[in-house]
């Protein structure tokens, strides 16, 4: 079972208290955008075997969204940070680089 640390309260949260909101750091495209951009926003996913950024909601708790940096191959959690962030904090990026040198993700905002 996945256990994630709440970046707001520091509490360790059990997967059953949480709701997964899917891939994080997506750029929103709405009406008026090109078909490609809209498709990318709505459907296309990084879906990496390895480094992954993901939205989580503390549904049965404080009701806040945060982002988890995880590894989908090893299930290691690199860290969590508030959802109101457009890019992972440097210490989490460093932790990922230590384990997965050369990792990549689509451009952060």
């Amino acid at each position: 079972m996945l256990t994630l640390k709440c970046p707001f309260t520091g509490a360790m949260l059990d997967e059953t208290e949480l709701h997964c909101g899917g891939e994080a750091h997506r750029k929103r495209f709405g009406p008026g955008s090109s078909d490609e951009d809209f498709e990318t926003y709505m459907f296309v996913r990084e879906n990496r075997k390895g480094v992954h950024f993901e939205l989580w909601l503390h549904a049965y708790g404080i009701g806040k969204w945060f982002i988890a940096a995880r590894d989908t191959e090893t299930l290691e959690v690199y860290g969590t940070y508030p959802a109101q962030t457009t890019e992972p904090p440097q210490d989490i990026k460093d932790a990922i680089t230590a384990k997965r040198p050369g990792w990549s993700w689509r451009e952060f905002e």
């Binding site: 709701h19 997964c20 989908t72 191959e73 299930l75």
Partner: peptide
């Protein structure tokens, strides 16, 4: 299971 995963295992709950 509710999240991306490549481990061919799953969550017990």
């Amino acid at each position: 299971d509710g999240f991306n995963n490549f481990t061919q295992r799953g969550s017990f709950h």
